[in-house]
Design a binder for these strands. Sequence first.
DNA 1: CCACGGATTGGCT
DNA 2: GCCAATCCGTGGA
Length: 204
Amino acid sequence: MTTLSLQKKLPEKFYQRELHKIAEELLGKIFVRIYDETILAGRIVEVEAYDGRVDQASHSFNGKTKRNEVMFGGGGSLYVYFTYGMHFCANVVTGKVNEGTAILLRALEPLEGIESMAMNRYGKTKISEKEKINLANGPGKICSAFAIAREENGTDLCGGEIFILNSKKIKPGEIAEVTRIGIKKSVDLPWRYYIKNNPFVSKK
DNA sequence: CCACGGATTGGCT
DNA sequence: GCCAATCCGTGGA
């Protein structure tokens, strides 16, 4: 193992704070899933914030439904949804109960369990550098590589086999704050955050 | 009840 | 750069 084991798991309190503060702090942290006795891990390099109180692009904007109820459950769990008939996307739920805020994981830099992630996504263990770049540089790709699907919706990030490890904060100057991708509403909110010059970011 | 379209991806032009 | 693939939650009738 690497230095991963020296890092601490982020506690519930980390998630029960202000959405955008958490979004920026999530950059650089390590998203981990223990899956089939293998450690899968990637550094978070790109996220997007969604706030149903003011943001029409958020799934939670029109209030609680069966689909989005996890988003209203308070910080510290994983909100997974199915879209375009074929992809899953994973969000870190933030804030207080009934707030309806979450952070979409948009890109990870693969760190551990790369062969296992490659098998999940490409059906093979040996991949090229180009395939490694493409392993988790998109919200649907993350879920494919980490085998995250409907069953993982609502997973507690503080008590199970999916969690986030702490790491040094990324300096403000290293963080880009730009508009979000793939939405039709609230398109001008600069709520996409990524680590500047990181090759694993989905789109510059 | 039914039609619409989406927080995407990858392949083809 | 454009568009098909492929479900199903959601909202309007």
